[in-house]
Design a protein around this nucleic acid. Structure first.
Lengths: 240, 240
DNA sequence: ATCATTAAACTGTCCTACAGTTTGATTGTA
DNA sequence: TACAATCAAACTGTAGGACAGTTTAATGAT
């Protein structure tokens, strides 16, 4: 006996529907943006009941593979890459209090360091111009009025996401997005945002971008790690 | 206008049920292992239809918060921490061919390096004894007959998981589990397993354990990274 | 032309009924 | 008494029908 047999269990029919559609999406037979047939038609195609189809669609929706809209021309639209399921699972770990801010920050520091290092190794002219464009955009939103701050934070997130894109690892990109979305709540709650802090943040980004531009992986990593560590220390201080 | 208002959309009722139960689980009002009321009772408690309850349960099941069994005394049991949703989302990225073996390996190398480093900093006597016990167990399964190899691989995974546990970051632990489960298919398919390779693997683990025991974070990190890199190189070679 | 109205195509919810699955109790048998 | 087979009960899984709610696009009035 070198093999382990799996217990023979008749597949639940909604699971069959899930598998079938998920495969079609992953193989590319259903492309991003395309709309699946209506529940009525699917019900006939799979020869099941509408309830079964709906349970299957709920599962696919949870997995971020489709998004469902009501009304005419509504239905299940195929979604492209989505970090949603990952973001959700991290969120649950946090709500269960298994994962704390320190855990998030440690994980983020590790990733941002690695990403910046890789980006410094792989970035081409176009990539660097993208980064610079984001920085210019961000600079425009540093102002005394808090009304522009939200925009700045968006640019900040975009900068980090672009670095991950340059590092060319979608797995890192998805995880970074998940961590960012979840850490954001803490950002707004525990950081004493001011024009000065915005400037500080901006300067850090410029430093990382410069290191990437000069193809200096070690510096890029160090600066990214320090950036994350600095802001986390600030938060931990205000957390008490 | 400093705030962004969200569009007023009446919450779908299955979503309400999901939120309610998820909150109860996360707050600890529903404890691990506990069984939720039957669909009939839930239907009455929430004053909805059974279909709605079932859609909600499908969502909770997808999120790894409950597992559902049929038959008497069946129903939805509250699950403890589960890396399932994370494993699933990684699996989807792979099936969509957005994430390759190289991506997985890079991510794994980063994590294993970091984890071993942290473990070397944080391990106490008990932790080190745990590691040694696993290694002893693993050694017993290195044999010429391939029948014991499956056991060895289990021990190998357990060793890495324990390191993550020692590093005290559940987020890293969950991600490592997700990557491991997904990379395993490649392991069996593209690695030329033999007694010699098993020994090689085993020796790497011993090296990491020794570095952790001697509280040598730098060495622990280096050895873990080399270990992952070595086996990945082997796979990449056989992938062509 | 532009705006309000309406019809159509969908998803969301509720109901009822019955089939399939698992467990624990009950009954029959050595 | 022990133990196996049988059965009933408590569940989830599936089917089908009805109607309410939502969104888009065509239609019509001004």
């Amino acid at each position: 006996m070198n093999v382990q047999f799996r217990k023979m269990k008749p597949l639940k029919s909604y699971q069959h529907v899930v598998d079938e559609i998920q495969t079609a999406i992953c193989e590319g037979n259903l492309k991003e943006g395309e709309t699946l047939p209506s529940e009525m038609k699917l019900k006939e195609m799979f020869d099941t009941s509408r309830g079964t189809i709906r349970e299957a669609l709920r599962v696919l929706e949870q997995r971020g593979l489709v998004s469902i809209r009501t009304g005419v021309n509504g239905g299940a639209r195929v979604q492209g890459a989505s970090a949603k399921p990952m973001t959700d699972s991290v969120a649950i770990l946090i709500r269960q209090q298994r994962v704390t801010l320190s855990h998030l920050a440690e994980f983020r520091k590790m990733m941002e360091g690695h990403i910046s290092e890789q980006a410094a190794k792989k970035a081409d002219m176009g990539d660097i111009q993208k980064l610079m464009a984001i920085l210019r955009d961000a600079a425009a939103h540093i102002q005394t009025k808090p009304s522009g701050w939200t925009e700045f934070h968006k640019m900040d997130a975009e900068f980090h996401r672009t670095l991950a894109e340059i590092a060319e690892n979608p797995l890192l990109e998805a995880n970074l997005t998940a961590v960012h979305s979840n850490i954001q709540i803490y950002f707004h709650q525990y950081l004493p945002w001011s024009e000065a802090l915005l400037h500080d943040n901006f300067k850090d980004l410029c430093g990382i971008a410069a290191a990437v531009e000069q193809r200096d992986p070690a510096t890029a990593r160090r600066m990214a790690e320090e950036h994350v560590a600095k802001f986390n220390a600030l938060m931990e201080k205000n957390l008490e």
